[in-house]
Computed example of a mutant assay.
Amino acid sequence: MKKRKKQREVDRQLLDSIFYAEAEWKKLQNIIENSIEPVQESQQKLQLAEAKYMFLLREAKHRKISVLRY
């Protein structure tokens, strides 16, 4: 029983991380789209944010976590 509660808590933290990473990625994407001359560093930050988001999505898929369940 305790293990299940711990797992639910970790799953909830993973979902929160996914939502945060998505918001960060979209924010950076919007900034770069509206920039006249995006800097190389901005492009790298965008790629890193996208990679984090995709990794978290794959982890949620691997754990079979759905937003609809929570």
Rank of each mutant, 00 (worst) to 15 (best):
S66I: 01
K26C: 02
L57Y: 02
D11H: 12
R63S: 05
Q44E: 13
N30C: 07
R8L: 10
L14T: 07
H62Q: 13
K3R: 05
D16R: 08
K52I: 09
K2A: 09
Q7G: 01
N30A: 14
I65N: 02
R8D: 08
E37W: 05
K6N: 06
L15P: 01
Q44G: 05
R8M: 12
E50S: 10
A51Q: 15
Y53A: 02
I31S: 03
F19R: 12
V67H: 07
R63V: 04
Q43V: 15
H62K: 15
I31M: 08
E37D: 13
E33P: 00
M1G: 13
R8Q: 13
E33H: 10
I36H: 08
A60R: 02
E50T: 05
D16N: 13
Q47I: 15
K27T: 05
D11N: 15
I32G: 00
R8E: 12
F19G: 03
K5E: 13
V39S: 11
N30T: 15
V39T: 15
Q29E: 15
A21W: 00
S42V: 03
A60I: 00
K61E: 07
V39W: 09
L46C: 01
E37G: 01
E9N: 05
R4T: 07
L68S: 13
Q40N: 14
S35M: 03
K2D: 07
L68C: 07
L68N: 15
Q29F: 12
